[in-house]
Amino acid sequence: MSKVKGAGSRADTVTAAIRADILAGRLIPGQRLTFPELGAAHAVSVGVLREALARLVEQGIVTTVSNQGFSVIALSARDFAELTQVRTLIEPQFIRVSVLAGSTRWESEVVAAHHVLQRTPYFAEDGTAFSPAWNTAHTDFHMTLLAGCSNVYMHDGTARLRDVSALYRRWSPIRSPADEALARITTEHRDLMDAALAHDADRAETLLREHIQRAADEIVIAREFPEPSAAAQG
């Protein structure tokens, strides 16, 4: 039993580490994920790596390649358009259910998640937008907004969609000036919180749909994304 538990714990740790490397841009879209390189980086067995990568496939940010193993997902304009279409259909309906069902405890969690997001630096140390800490706080806020609903299928599906969206955001420069974008995003997040606390499902649904679409409109598609180098592809 201890061996199984230990292996599971290692897979959890490696899954989180590789996921963080992908979302932070240390592993780039389309890059092959080879067992020798990952094994050396994380000091774990092929079995643990295979389990971790299979989990990341389920999360939507890693894919299997025929006769080649695993790779970070590639990014494309068509894929992003389809992703945005699904998000604008699903997440606003999800927040409607959450807002109508949310408890007093959920309200306090929404306020706390918003406070953390507001206090988390938007800019990374190099001055670029979307610091890793802000990305984490941003995801936590949005998932907390949806936490009033207990439907696990909605949560699992939404988490996957948000991870893929975060990867697109990481590799695309924003169209508007960073300070202007931050001011807009800050206002939109506050409005979402206010609608949630007021249990105004109609407003929350509309705001979230507009928020997702505006964020998508900021993303520059296709040739802006990097091509993995020969060395990166292994």
Rank of each mutant, 00 (worst) to 15 (best):
V4Y: 02
K5C: 00
G8A: 13
S9C: 08
S9I: 04
S9W: 07
A11C: 00
A11H: 01
A11W: 02
D12V: 14
D12P: 05
V14A: 05
A17C: 05
R19I: 00
R19E: 10
R19C: 05
A20G: 03
D21P: 05
I22M: 11
R26K: 13
P29G: 06
G30L: 12
Q31S: 08
L33F: 05
T34Q: 05
T34S: 12
T34H: 05
F35N: 02
F35D: 03
P36R: 02
A40L: 11
A41D: 08
H42P: 04
A43T: 11
A43L: 10
V44K: 04
V46P: 01
G47H: 07
V48E: 04
V48A: 04
V48T: 15
L49N: 02
R50P: 00
E51Y: 00
L53A: 09
L53R: 12
A54D: 14
V57Q: 07
V57N: 06
V57I: 11
V57K: 08
E58T: 12
E58A: 14
Q59F: 05
Q59S: 07
I61A: 13
I61K: 03
I61E: 06
V62G: 02
V65Q: 13
V65F: 08
S66H: 15
N67H: 13
N67Q: 14
Q68N: 10
G69F: 07
F70A: 04
F70K: 01
S71C: 10
V72L: 06
I73W: 10
A74P: 08
S76F: 15
S76T: 13
D79V: 06
F80N: 12
F80T: 13
F80V: 09
E82V: 04
E82H: 14
E82N: 13
E82S: 08
L83Y: 08
T84C: 11
T84I: 14
Q85V: 02
Q85Y: 15
V86T: 10
R87V: 00
R87P: 01
R87T: 00
L89M: 13
L89K: 15
I90P: 00
E91I: 05
Q93H: 08
I95S: 02
I95H: 05
I95A: 03
I95P: 03
V97G: 06
V97E: 07
